[in-house]
């Protein structure tokens, strides 16, 4: 286990349901991601990618094995510890999940407000800056309903990255976008992450964006492996 590891998954199993309906979704997962690394996870749908991502992100409690995120063990952590762990991470979802009653700027500010140590002005300043970095300085006061799909996903990226998280978890962030906006969104993510030195774990089916990865891992039937030969995809 290297000192620099941002994420260390060791012998992780995960089950859904209980009793007769108990079903194993993850089998003996071992994965180590160094700080600053960009890792892409692919694999057929239903193979357990989202499950692994939610476990690493602290959205689900891990049941057995070991799961260390930026040095904190979160397997068997309390709800309170999980909530704190979530604040280290930036999430980007397949759906943008922006709050429809908040402007782009307010949505991004919410991600800073949760930390509770920045004043209103600081939050405003940082969020505006972040929106400028994703190329939306002209759209800061737009509501999500008035933005295009690509623009919404860029707001979501700004929201995930504005608080300089150590880890960014992205679940099929380009699935709902056309080719051009999908590429733009991934480039923005890559550049910002490199600037901030954060670690990225990105789940995707999109072959066109595999080039941003330092490493690709493959999930099938709840087991992780090296990526198969291209024709097997």
């Amino acid at each position: 286990m290297s000192k620099e590891a941002a994420i260390v998954v060791h012998q992780l199993d995960h089950y859904f349901g209980s009793g007769q309906l108990r079903k194993q979704a993850l089998f003996n997962i071992n994965l180590e991601i160094r700080a600053g690394e960009i890792v892409i996870m692919t694999g057929p749908s239903g193979s357990g990618k989202t499950t692994l991502l939610t476990l690493i992100g602290g959205l689900r409690s891990a049941q057995s094995g070991s799961l260390k995120v930026v040095g904190h063990e979160i397997c068997g952590a309390s709800e309170n510890q999980l909530v704190r762990a979530r604040r280290h991470n930036g999430y980007i979802f397949q759906a943008h999940n922006l709050h429809g009653s908040l402007t782009a700027l307010e949505n991004v500010q919410m991600s800073l407000e949760v930390h509770g140590h920045l004043s209103k002005q600081q939050r405003y300043y940082r969020a505006s800056e972040m929106l400028a970095e994703v190329g939306l300085e002209e759209r800061t006061n737009y509501y999500p309903a008035d933005l295009s799909g690509g623009q919404k996903q860029r707001v979501a990226i700004a929201r995930a990255l504005v608080s300089h998280p150590k880890i960014v978890l992205a679940d099929e962030p380009t699935a709902a976008l056309d080719k051009k906006s999908g590429r733009d969104v991934v480039d923005i993510m890559q550049n910002l992450a490199k600037e901030q030195g954060c670690t990225i774990l990105l789940v995707t089916h999109d072959n066109r964006i595999l080039d941003i990865a330092d490493r690709i891992v493959y999930m099938e039937d709840g087991r992780l492996s090296k990526p198969p030969a291209p024709e097997a995809d």
Partner: peptide, 15 residues
């Protein structure tokens, strides 16, 4: 009508 947004807030670390 705000369930997804609320869940997102919780994923961000809101209690």
């Amino acid at each position: 009508s705000h369930l997804a947004e609320y869940a997102t807030f919780r994923a961000m670390g809101y209690r």
